[in-house]
Structures are given as C-alpha cells and as structure tokens.
Design a protein around this nucleic acid. Structure first.
Lengths: 211, 211
DNA sequence: TTGAAACGCTACGTTGCGTAGCGTTAGTAC
DNA sequence: GTACTAACGCTACGCAACGTAGCGTTTCAA
C-alpha cells in the first residue's frame, strides 16, 4: 500500500528547499495519474474506473501505475484521501448546537457537491471488506472527525451546554450515521436543513424525556 | 430485474393446491442456484462471487442463470432479499425504550451472525449507485424498518413515553445510522450493549437539555 | 559524467463477462 | 400415450481488463 506516502520522501531526510520531491519526476507522474483518475471518476464512477483507462488518459504507462497502486481500489482511495486532506475544523461560533449542526451540514455538502460522494459510494464496500483500506480510512477520516467533535464537546461542556459525560464518539456516530445511512441505503433527502433538524431532534426538542 | 418475482407465478392466477410452482422444475432450479450462491457468498463474499462459480457448484448451466439474473449483483441481492424476507416486527414488552433498543440489537445481531452482514458489505456500493437496486432495497427493507419503528412510536406516544411530534423516519435514521456507520466505515465495536447505550444517549440520559 | 531510480513499451497468459445457436428434457393438456 | 411448450444444457464464442515479465530509455542528482 503506497497510498499513505506516495513519494517515499520527506520522512527521515534532511529538509531541503521547498520539498524538492514535489517537483521531481516522480511527483509529476504522480500528479498526472491522480488527475486522470479524478477525471475518470467524475465521468464513470469507481465502478467504471479502469487502470488501462487511467493509463491512456494520463499518458503514463500502465506498468508504471501498477508499480504504485496495487489496484484500482488503491487508486481511488488515494484520490479520496487526497481530497479529504483539508477537512478543517469547525469554527467556534459561540453556539454549541449550531456548531454541531455545522458538522452535519458540512459533511452533507461534501458528499453532495464534490467527487467525494461519488467515490465514497463506490468505495464503501471495499473499505468495509478490506482491513487495510479500512485502517487507512479510519486514520485519515474517521479519527479526524471524532477529534473535531471532541473539541466541540469540550467547548460545549465548558459553556454548560453539554453534560460532562458526553461520549464524543457516540455523538459523532449519531451525527454522521444518519447521513451515510441516507446517502447509501435509504435514499431519503439530505438538504440544507438536515443538520439543524437532526441536532434539535437529538437535544431534547424531539422526543420527551425518560419516564 | 427478476429478483422480486422469480417464478412469475402467484400474482394474478387462481390459487391452486399448495402453490404448484414451488415444486416445479423452475422452482427446483431456483433453489439450486440460490443455495449455491449462498454457499459461495459465505466463502468468498460478494466480491469473489462469480456466475461461473455458481454454475459449477449448482450444476445449473451458466446460460440458465443468466436467463434469470442480469448479473452477479442481481444474484446477491436476490439472496439478500430472500434472507431478509422474515424480518418480523418488534414485540410489545411494555417499555418503549427497551423496544427501541431491541430494534438496534436485532439489527446488529442480523449483521453479525448471518450472511446478511457480509452481503451488505459487498452490496452497499451497488445499492448506492444503482437506482433500480436501491428501489428494491428500500421497498423490501428500509420501508419495513420505518414502519416497525412507527408502530413503536405510536405505542410510545399513547403510553406517554414519547412526544406526539416524534418523526419516525428521523428516529429510524438515528437508531440504524450509527450501526451501519460503524459496520461499514468506522469499524468501532457493535456489541450487545450498544442498543441500550444508544437509546439512553438519545433520550435525555446523555447530553444535557437545551440552553 | 555516470549511476541508479523511474519510466515506457510490447507482449503475454488468465479470468470472467455476457451472448448466440441449437439440441434435449420435463412437465401439461388433450 | 402423444404432442406441445417452457425450461434447461451445452459448446463456442468475442471481449474487456486484469496483472506481470522483460528489456530498453529517460531523468536527475551526486
């Protein structure tokens, strides 16, 4: 699995001027491959993606692609992780519930408006089945999301909005689970109001309190 | 798509003694195919499933299989829907929260202990991408789940456990979304206690009430 | 200038897909 | 029993993509 560190550089070496590996031959080839993959993904999705197609479109030899990526799944995951790299953290707006709703809406936006949604649809089966891919996805995406929510929770607790015993992971599941469930399986709409509705259902404006 | 009604019988005809179509040649072949598919799914998963493999194992000619199922996806979905056919409704135990937790735990049990989990992992991408498969899945699975939860909600409201304005679909998403999210993407554990924890987090024993 | 890493290219063997054409068997109706 | 028809079996394709081997060529940096 070369996905995590395609250039093989930048780890133990002396840091030279402006990361020379980013402009070397290898990096150029890398970009050609990923750009072509992105284009092809946009057109035909993960299912229609072929290594041969990427080779033709990018001008890079098929064998070169196989020297880096084990399979088309590996290739698609590389694009996914690359696109997700800059997720960012949810800003402090002074309102815990608004911030939580923001997490939800940003995720929906991500799935609806970019390639990521399409890639996720095609990759979810592979991620679910392949432990190696699953690990990569967890480290690069899932864990970051939980960490983001954890920050919100800590802010919320210090504001007195949330109980001190809130489980950040469970809360993340409650915020994101419904999104993916709708996106993958139920097909129910994921519009702009969903975040607010979800959060207000979650926090006491929905069901009544315990008996 | 032949999945929904493979035999083509039993719809508009006169009901004869004990559904003769169930013992005819066609039904026999059907069983051979589905049994072999089930075996192969258990061994190699949806990804490793091949129509040729099913043909060899079942003794049924490959062409015969293609006369019924468009693709291996169609085949796997047929097994899935067949296995899910007898989902059943959640019994009345007098406790709304226990009933909701039961919905969660049953779903987890279904995913963990049977072929269904494995099939779902392999099919979720196809369901997400193919509108026809998605429709079949919604009608046969999603809608039934929502209907079940709706009954629970109505009971809960009449008991005074739930507010009268609870949205059954949103509640279903909140109960099942986290399960599938963990199962497909996050990989966090789905043990027996999950249902109770989820429900108690949902209903006021988790986060504090609104500011 | 030179040496190693990276790349290009051709040519394979293989699997699995999905279909065509035609003969054969098993039930059904008379 | 005979005849008819739906269902099935079988062989033989053409095709797309996979993934690899082997060897020559280019790039870049020391």
């Amino acid at each position: 699995m070369d996905v995590a560190n395609p250039t093989g550089a930048g780890e133990g070496g002396i840091v030279e001027a402006a990361r020379p590996a980013d402009t070397g031959r290898r990096a150029r080839t890398e970009k050609l491959i990923l750009d072509a993959t992105r284009e092809m993904l946009a057109e035909v999705g993960v299912n229609g993606l072929t290594v041969e197609g990427v080779a033709n479109r990018s001008g890079v030899a098929k064998t070169t692609i196989y020297r880096r990526y084990r399979s088309k799944t590996d290739l698609a995951l590389a694009v996914l992780l690359d696109s997700v790299e800059y997720l960012g953290t949810t800003p402090d707006v002074g309102d815990t519930y608004a911030e939580l709703a923001e997490v939800v809406d940003r995720t929906i936006e991500l799935l609806n408006s970019t390639l990521i949604g399409r890639i996720m649809q095609g990759l979810v089966s592979e991620i679910a089945a392949d432990p190696e891919l699953a690990l990569a996805y967890r480290e690069r995406v899932v864990n970051r999301r939980v960490a983001d929510v954890r920050r919100l929770v800590e802010r919320g607790i210090s504001r007195g909005d949330l109980r001190p015993d809130v489980d950040a992971e469970m809360l993340t599941d409650l915020l994101l689970g419904p999104i993916y469930y709708r996106f993958f399986l139920s097909g129910s709409p994921l519009d702009e109001g969903f975040g607010v509705r979800l959060v207000s259902t979650l926090f006491s404006r929905g069901p009544a309190q315990g008996a």
